[in-house]
Amino acid sequence: MQEPQSVQKVILEIVAELSTSRPQQIKDTDRLREDLGLDSVSSMEMLSMLAERLDLDVSLEEAMQVNTVGEVIALSERRLGKA
């Protein structure tokens, strides 16, 4: 099981891979679409990569409700039983 610290790191790396921001510039309050410039397909793709790397079960409906980086982290931690 991943430590929260590393979960956050993985998330920031994936977000940075798909958007044009560097991990250290990304804040929890950043909105995926408006602030990080991910369109609906790439923001969903980000969640799928996360599910793959952290081996999470996330439904598409749940994923579509996520708006900010903080919500991505919270969802992942819930699925990993951390929160």
Binding site: V58, S59, L60
Partner: peptide, 11 residues
Amino acid sequence: LKSAHGARAFL
């Protein structure tokens, strides 16, 4: 596709 792979369908 959604029910088989959930959010991972995008991959």
